[in-house]
């Protein structure tokens, strides 16, 4: 499974020296993205339909059958979807909060910073699978297992990106703030925290897809409730239509979450000039 990029590369466009464009210019781009998404989806469905005519249904069912399975799952398995969503929300929220705090400490505390940095770097080297297996030994409660697995995997992304964010803060802003002789808390409140918001957004956007894959995987290993466990059940009962239906729903979930994040980002980071690179 591919992991999202860990290093923050998002700098404000003005610092990149890229030409800033007026906001409405981005709209046609978004429409183009949507059209492309529709075209690719239709092509995939057509490919499935064609394949289903040449192979037995347990290898590739027709998209119509999968569509029926989706409707079935949406009425009968709503409980499992909400459990998965709750797990995802809790783990992402917690990792964000603690990861941001750790990242801030890494960037601002000379004494603690290096130790936390080492800890996070070591954590990033541990494969997700190791955590999943270890969690089965350490925790009896499936909720604790899943929460633990997701947190140890997601937290370093936040910590490292926020740390990068603090380090990339222009020194001249700090000097400007210092000229008013602020307290440490004021420096955080007026400078550091607003500056890292964009890094938190960037991290969330890049980990959300990964987090969905991880929560499904963790549920498959550690739980009897949730989308992952339902997929495992579908596989063991040879219901490939259910497996594909769940896959479809997860893809849609990822798209919806990404769109919501983009919407929130556009609202919160409206101060940014959108860059247009030729």
């Amino acid at each position: 499974m591919s992991q999202p990029a860990r290093t923050a590369s998002s700098v404000t466009p003005s610092r990149l020296g890229v030409r800033a464009a007026a906001r409405p210019a981005a709209r046609p781009g978004r429409r183009r993205d949507l059209t492309a998404l529709c075209v690719v989806s239709v092509l995939l469905i057509l490919a499935m339909e064609v394949a289903s005519r040449f192979v037995p249904p347990f290898i590739m069912p027709s998209p119509l059958v999968v569509g029926q399975a989706v409707l079935e799952l949406l009425t009968s398995d709503w409980h499992h979807v909400s459990v998965t969503l709750l797990r995802l929300g809790a783990a992402v929220g917690f990792s964000m909060l603690v990861g941001v705090l750790i990242g801030l400490l890494m960037g601002t505390s000379r004494r603690l910073g290096p130790y936390l940095n080492s800890l996070v770097i070591i954590d990033t080297g541990i494969p997700a699978l190791s955590w999943m297996l270890v969690a089965v030994f350490w925790f009896k409660d499936p909720e604790a297992r899943i929460f633990f697995i997701l947190t140890v995997i997601l937290l370093p992304f936040y910590a490292l990106n926020v740390y990068e964010g603090v380090r990339s803060m222009p020194k001249e802003w700090v000097d400007m703030m210092e000229s008013f002789r602020p307290s440490r808390w004021q420096l955080m409140r007026y400078l550091v925290i607003p500056h890292i918001v964009q890094y938190v957004f960037m991290t969330t956007k890049s980990v959300i897809g990964y987090a969905i894959r991880m929560v499904i995987f963790a549920e498959l290993v550690a739980s009897a409730v949730g989308v992952g466990s339902r997929m495992s059940l579908a596989q063991s009962t040879f219901r490939i239509d259910y497996v594909l239906a769940w896959t479809f729903l997860l893809v849609v979930l990822n798209l919806v979450l990404q769109s919501l994040l983009n919407l929130a980002e556009r609202h919160v980071l409206k101060w940014r000039a959108e860059a247009k690179v030729r």
Binding site: T12, S14, E172, W173, D175, M176, Y190, L191, P194, H195, V197, L269, W271, R272
Partner: peptide
């Protein structure tokens, strides 16, 4: 300062 050092947000 020489540069405005305004906070963009």
């Amino acid at each position: 300062f020489q540069t405005d050092r305004l906070l963009p947000w």
